[in-house]
Every structure is written in structure tokens, then in C-alpha cells.
Amino acid sequence: MDVFMKGLSKAKEGVVAAAEKTKQGVAEAAGKTKEGVLYVGSKTKEGVVHGVATVAEKTKEQVTNVGGAVVTGVTAVAQKTVEGAGSIAAATGFVKKDQLGKNEEGAPQEGILEDMPVDPDNEAYEMPSEEGYQDYEPEA
């Protein structure tokens, strides 16, 4: 019985440690998101679009440190934060509304985080759909 109880105690310690790591990862992701939003706020009209992409990228980098179902929630929060940063930029006159959601080359930025393969159960990952990809044929 002692062996059984000791095993359960060790398992509990492992769960607590994993929860603490997840909590730490979420806190880091939130900190990076805040950094990115402050970065966007300090940019001029020309830099705002690039700044919004930076927020998304920093958040995406930190999301990889967070495991399990938390990833889905962090990704949703990050996307809403990026959308909010863009709205703030438009409201303050840093950028025109028609410039939001495009990178410096004018290509749409939507789907940055949505296409990231995420499995809350950590069982399997699927690649994003290939609808947006084109076949590449090298020139002879």
C-alpha cells in the first residue's frame, strides 16, 4: 500500500510541476504579447503594419512553449490582441483601416495563427491545408 501511495504522490508532483510550467509559459506569452502591443503603439504610420505582424510573430513563438489545451486559448487571445492593436492603430490615425491585415508588401496577414497546427491532446499534428499553395516548377 505504501508503494501505491508513494507512486500516487510522485504522479501528483509531476502534474503540479507540469501545471506550473504551463502557467509560466502562458505568463511569458502574455508578456511578449504586451511587449508587441507597446511596440505597435510606438510606431509611426509606416511601421504600424509591420508592428502588428511582430506582435503576432512574438506571440506565436511563445505559444510553442505552452502545451496542451492552453495553446488553443493563448492563440485565440493573441489573435484578438493583434486585431485590437490594429483597431487602436486605425482609431489613433497611425494607419488607414484599409491597410490593416496586410503586410508591407500588401499581402493579407489573416491566418497567421489560424494555420498553425495545434492539437490540445498532444496526440497528432496535421499540416495546414494546401489550398493556398501553388506547385513550383523550376525553369529549365
Rank of each mutant, 00 (worst) to 15 (best):
S9P: 00
I88W: 06
G68Q: 05
E104Q: 02
D135I: 09
T64G: 08
L100W: 06
P117W: 04
A18W: 15
K10V: 05
V26Q: 00
V40Y: 15
P120F: 08
S42R: 05
D119S: 02
K21E: 01
K97H: 04
G101E: 00
A27Q: 12
V16T: 09
G47L: 09
V49Y: 04
K10D: 02
K12A: 08
E57A: 06
I112N: 07
D98F: 02
Y39R: 00
Q109A: 08
G31N: 14
D2Y: 13
L113K: 13
V48S: 02
E123V: 10
V77P: 02
E139Q: 13
A29P: 00
V77Q: 02
A107C: 07
V48G: 01
T81P: 02
A140T: 07
G67V: 15
T72H: 01
V49C: 10
E46L: 00
Q109S: 07
P138T: 08
G73Q: 11
P128C: 12
T72L: 15
G84Q: 14
I88F: 07
Q109K: 07
G51E: 02
M127Q: 08
Q62H: 07
V66Y: 14
G25W: 02
E57I: 02
A89L: 13
E61N: 02
A76M: 04
M5V: 08
V52W: 13
V74W: 13
A76G: 13
D2T: 08
T59E: 01
Q99V: 09
K96M: 12
V16M: 09
Y125R: 04
E28W: 11
S9Y: 03
K97R: 07
G41F: 14
Y125G: 12
V26A: 05
E110C: 10
K6E: 03
T54F: 14
A17K: 08
K23H: 06
K80R: 13
G73S: 06
A17W: 15
A124V: 13
T72S: 01
K34N: 03
Y133P: 15
M127H: 13
G51P: 02
G68N: 14
K10H: 14
I112W: 13
N65T: 06
G14W: 09
V71I: 03
A29R: 05
A19G: 14
A30G: 03
K6S: 03
A27V: 10
K23L: 06
Y136F: 14
K34Y: 13
V95P: 10
Q79K: 05
T75S: 07
M127D: 00
A124F: 09
T33F: 03
G73R: 12
V95Y: 05
P138D: 15
N103F: 11
Q109W: 12
V77T: 03
A27D: 02
G86M: 02
G47R: 13
E131Y: 12
E105F: 09
E13C: 10
F4S: 00
E126P: 11
K102W: 08
P138R: 09
K23S: 05
E28K: 14
V16R: 12
Y39F: 14
A78K: 11
M1L: 03
Y133S: 04
A69P: 04
N103W: 06
T44I: 06
G73E: 05
F4T: 00
K6F: 15
E61R: 02
E13G: 07
V3F: 13
K34P: 00
E57H: 06
E61V: 03
L100K: 05
T92L: 14
D2V: 03
T92Y: 06
P128M: 03
T44E: 00
E83Q: 04
G68E: 03
M127R: 12
S87M: 12
D121F: 08
A124I: 08
A124P: 14
E126Y: 13
G106C: 14
M116E: 15
V3D: 03
M5H: 06
V16K: 03
K43M: 03
M116S: 09
K23I: 04
G67C: 06
G31T: 10
G84N: 06
K102T: 14
K23M: 14
K12N: 01
K43G: 01
K10Q: 06
F94H: 07
T44A: 04
A27G: 04
G31K: 07
Q99K: 12
P120Y: 09
A11L: 15
P117N: 13
V95H: 11
A89K: 08
E83G: 06
A69W: 15
E13D: 00
G31D: 00
D115E: 07
V55E: 00
E114Q: 00
D98C: 12
K45G: 08
G106K: 09
T22D: 03
V52A: 08
V63Y: 10
D121C: 04
K12Q: 01
F94K: 01
P108G: 14
T59A: 12
A89M: 13
G51D: 02
K10I: 11
H50T: 11
T64H: 05
A107K: 09
V49S: 07
V70S: 00
A17F: 08
A30D: 00
E139G: 15
D2S: 02
E110D: 05
V55H: 01
V63A: 13
A140I: 05
A19C: 05
E35N: 14
K6R: 06
V3H: 15
K96T: 06
T72C: 05
H50W: 10
S129M: 10
N65D: 02
E139D: 07
V77A: 13
A78S: 06
E13S: 06
V16L: 05
Y133T: 08
Q99F: 09
T44H: 04
T22P: 04
A89F: 09
K34R: 13
P138W: 08
K102V: 05
G93M: 13
V52H: 01
T72M: 12
G67Q: 03
A76P: 02
Y136T: 05
N122G: 15
G86K: 15
G36E: 04
Y133L: 13
K32N: 03
K45W: 13
M5Q: 02
E35R: 05
P138S: 01
E105N: 14
G25H: 10
V37S: 01
V82S: 04
P108E: 10
P138I: 07
G84Y: 07
L38Y: 12
P108H: 07
T64D: 03
Y136C: 12
E110Y: 10
V82A: 03
D115W: 09
A17Y: 03
V15Y: 15
K80D: 01
G132K: 10
G84V: 04
K21S: 08
V37M: 07
V55T: 03
E104W: 14
K6I: 07
V40I: 01
G111V: 07
A30L: 15
V40W: 00
A29F: 01
A30I: 12
V49D: 01
E35C: 15
E105M: 01
S87I: 04
A124W: 10
E28L: 11
K97Q: 04
V71L: 09
T81L: 04
M5L: 04
K80G: 05
A107I: 09
G31Q: 06
A27I: 04
V70Q: 03
T92Q: 11
G36S: 10
T75Q: 06
V70L: 15
E137H: 03
A140D: 09
N65Q: 06
G93C: 10
N65A: 03
K97E: 13
L8G: 00
E61Q: 08
T54Q: 12
Y39Q: 07
K60Q: 05
E13F: 07
Q79T: 13
T33V: 14
A19S: 01
V3T: 01
A11H: 01
T72F: 00
M127W: 12
D98K: 10
G68T: 12
K97S: 08
A56K: 04
E110W: 12
T81G: 08
L100C: 04
M127F: 08
S42L: 02
V82P: 04
K96V: 13
E104C: 02
E110H: 05
Q134F: 03
K12E: 01
V66C: 07
N65Y: 06
E137G: 12
V49E: 10
A107S: 04
K12I: 15
T22W: 04
I88T: 05
T92H: 03
T59I: 15
K12Y: 11
Q134V: 05
P120W: 06
K21D: 01
K96N: 12
T59W: 15
D119C: 08
E61S: 11
K97L: 02
E137A: 14
P138G: 07
E104N: 08
V15P: 00
T92V: 08
S87H: 15
L100R: 01
K23R: 11
V52E: 00
D98E: 06
E28C: 06
K23T: 05
G93E: 05
G41N: 01
